[in-house]
Computed example of a mutant assay.
Amino acid sequence: MHATTDLYLQLQRVYQSKAEADVAAVEGHLRVILKETGKPAGSISRADVKLYCKNARHLRLVRFRALSEEFGGDCKHQVLRQALSGEDTATNATLYILMRAVDRFYETHKHFPGTFDSPPEAEIPLLKGKASALLTEMGASPSPAWDDCLAEMCRFGAGELHCVAAIVAGMAAQEAIKLLTRQFLPQAGTVVYNAMGSTTSVFLL
C-alpha cells in the first residue's frame, strides 16, 4: 500500500470529522438526560464527553461481589459445577473447593491438614469428608484430579512458597494499578492460581 502526506491528512480529517459528529450527537442526548433529571446543562464537560466517546468501545460494567456474598451465595454452585466438568478448568475448580474444605477442616480440628503430629496421609480421609460435603451441597461430581489434589493439599501442610507468594502478590498489585489508574479491565471474579500446572482461572462466584 502506498500513501502520500496529502492523502494521509485527508484521511485524518475524515476520522476527526466523524469523531466530532459523534461527540455532538452524544452531547445532544446528554442535554436531554440532564434536563430530565434536573441537573445543570454544564455539569458534564465537553472534555469528559470526548473522553467517553474515545473509549466507549472498550467500556465494560464490572460488578464486584463481597466475600460474604461469595461464601454465602448459591450462584457459585452452577459456576463450579461447570468448571469441574471443563477440561481446562477442572483442576483449578477442584483446588478452589478444597481450599474451602480446608477452612471447614480448620474450624473442626483447629489445625490445617498436614500440620499436626499425625502423618499427612492420615488426614486425607478427614479432608475428603469435608470436601465431599461441599460437593453434595453444590450437586457436583468430583473431577478426575480430585484424589491427587486431596493428597497434595494434605502433603504441603499449609505451606507458603516464596515463589508462589511473589506471583500472587504481583497479580494483586496489577489489579490495584488497574483500579487506581482506571486503565484496562480488572478481574471481576475469584482468581485461582495453580502453581503445579502454571495455570490461572477466574471464577465468577
Rank of each mutant, 00 (worst) to 15 (best):
V26N: 02
F64G: 10
L84A: 01
H2M: 12
T181C: 11
F116V: 08
Y15M: 12
P40T: 06
L84T: 01
T4H: 09
T200D: 06
L7Q: 15
G42V: 03
E87F: 08
Q82F: 00
R13C: 08
R57T: 13
V102E: 03
C154W: 00
R155T: 08
D6F: 09
F112E: 06
T199E: 11
A188L: 04
F71E: 09
G42C: 07
T94V: 06
R100G: 05
S85Q: 14
N92S: 13
A56S: 11
I97G: 00
E123M: 05
P144N: 09
L7M: 14
G38W: 00
D147V: 03
H77K: 14
K18N: 13
F71Y: 10
S45Y: 06
Q78D: 12
T199R: 10
A19R: 06
D48Y: 03
P142E: 06
T108W: 07
P40N: 05
A176W: 06
L80P: 00
A165P: 00
K128I: 06
L84P: 00
A131T: 07
A172N: 08
L61P: 02
V62E: 08
E87G: 05
L11C: 14
P144E: 07
K128F: 05
D147E: 13
P113K: 03
M196D: 14
L180M: 12
M99N: 15
A122W: 08
A21M: 10
R155I: 06
G139E: 03
D148K: 10
S118V: 12
G157Y: 00
F105A: 02
M153K: 05
L9C: 13
A90R: 04
I33P: 05
E137Y: 13
F116M: 08
G72C: 07
S198D: 15
L59W: 09
A131P: 05
S143H: 01
V62L: 11
A131R: 02
G159S: 11
E69V: 02
V49H: 03
E175I: 04
V164I: 08
E175G: 05
I33Y: 14
W146R: 04
G197L: 09
A41F: 12
S201Y: 01
A24V: 13
A131G: 13
A41S: 15
L205I: 03
F184Q: 15
T89W: 00
T181E: 10
E27H: 06
A93Y: 01
R31P: 01
T5K: 13
G157C: 02
Y106E: 10
D117M: 15
